[in-house]
Design a protein around this nucleic acid. Structure first.
Length: 325
RNA sequence: GGACGGGUGGGUGAGUGGCUAAAACCAGCAGACUGUAAAUCUGCCGCUCCUUGCGGGCUACGAAGGUUCGAAUCCUUCCCCGUCCA
């Protein structure tokens, strides 16, 4: 109707690992004049390709992809950092009148982008170091007691054993000299200027697990092990964060002869299943998602999703490639 | 054939007369999560009933029988498994 005045569309595809988000993203991008924007904390890293299930180069040539391979393994990925980069990509796409299609595996990053983050300082490694040291000195429970003094309300919401979240909360309180719960209350700036449509992929649990198992096997066949060896061979510190990603951890154990390849493969499959479950838990809570029961690469499902998007007002691109329909 | 060691809930494995539906861990399920998020953490986890209670009933520690107020725990026999001897 008044397409001139209404904000442009943004499509977000949400779903557990191995549900076919990337394939769907590309398929939709080709039909809707879109470009894929990865929303995945691991695909950010260069060099970690097979285990993070990055779309292969051929597909990335077919349709432009963003926010893949933008970090050196030594850099730390953060929700705030992702948000900034994503905002820049969105502006670029807005100017070029391309439809952003987010393929989101990392729920926190999507929320950070769409709903914003409270205005709080970034992490401070030095402060964290000190906190960890006094934790060692004072034993378990210390961090929780400390936060209870700084911000009783925040302490109530964080379990005593959850040191990662305790440290972040204490860090913010100390850096700002204000309770983090208060800072959170003061609100966040949601994304503006986009009409967001969320698609959810929810394959049957058993089928998803089968996919996960098959994909793990195929990743190993594609030379995942060689990739890990190669990365280690470049002198990259073994403590670099991406080496702790799902699977990379297990494969390093194989190289250290702590695990057989067979055991590692099973451990990876299991860890991936658990990861998929956590993603589902997160996404189920996500507001206004149109859920589809199936895989994103299912040719029977794809047209239904396209029809749904059209019902929301998205228009097919005239530049649809030949032979793809 | 003989001598030891062992058989515990989906798995590993603790428990050697009551506090034990049975530690702990894993798996599984559910959940939380505003800057490490493929991370981190929480709950549930034999079956069943209701008036949902530190509630009731039933079943359970290889099998059967016994001792005892009471047994996964003690005794007897049997069946499996492992190691060693023949």
């Amino acid at each position: 109707m008044n397409a001139k005045n209404s904000p442009p569309f943004l499509v977000a595809i949400v779903g557990p690992t191995a549900s076919g988000k990337s394939a769907l993203g590309i398929w939709l991008a080709e039909r809707l004049g879109g470009e894929v924007v990865s929303c995945d904390s691991t695909q950010l890293y260069r060099g970690f390709d097979i285990g993070t299930a990055k779309p292969p180069a051929a597909e990335r040539r077919q349709v432009p992809h963003h926010l893949i391979d933008v970090l050196h393994p030594r850099e730390a990925a953060t929700a705030g950092g992702y948000r900034e980069r994503a905002l820049a990509v969105l502006e670029d796409l807005r100017l070029r009148k391309r439809l952003p299609i987010l393929t989101v595996g990392t729920g926190l990053y999507l929320r950070a982008l769409l709903e914003g983050l409270a205005e709080v300082p970034q992490r401070s490694e030095e402060l964290r170091e000190r906190l960890r040291a006094s934790r060692e000195e004072h034993g378990p429970g210390y961090l929780h007691r400390l936060l209870r003094r700084l911000d009783p309300q925040a302490a109530q919401k964080i379990a005593q054993a959850d040191e990662q979240k305790l440290i972040r909360a204490i860090e913010v309180c100390l850096l700002t000299r204000r309770p983090i719960s208060e800072l959170h209350r003061s609100g966040r700036k949601p994304l503006e200027g986009w009409r967001v449509v969320k698609i959810g992929l929810m394959p049957a649990r058993g089928k998803l697990y089968e996919r996960i198992h098959a994909r793990t096997a195929s990743m190993l066949e594609q030379g995942w092990m060689r990739e890990v060896q190669g990365l280690l061979g470049t002198g990259l510190d073994e403590n670099a964060k991406p080496f702790d990603f799902l699977g990379y951890r297990e494969l390093r154990a194989v190289l250290r002869n702590k695990l057989s390849l067979e055991q590692a493969s099973e451990a990876i499959q299991q860890a991936t299943r658990r990861y998929a479950k956590r993603q589902l838990t997160w996404f189920r809570k996500e507001a206004e998602v149109e859920w589809f029961a199936g895989f994103g690469d299912d040719p029977d499902l794809q047209p239904a999703i396209l029809r749904f998007l059209e019902s929301q007002g998205l228009k097919r691109s005239r530049r649809t490639r030949e032979g793809s329909v």
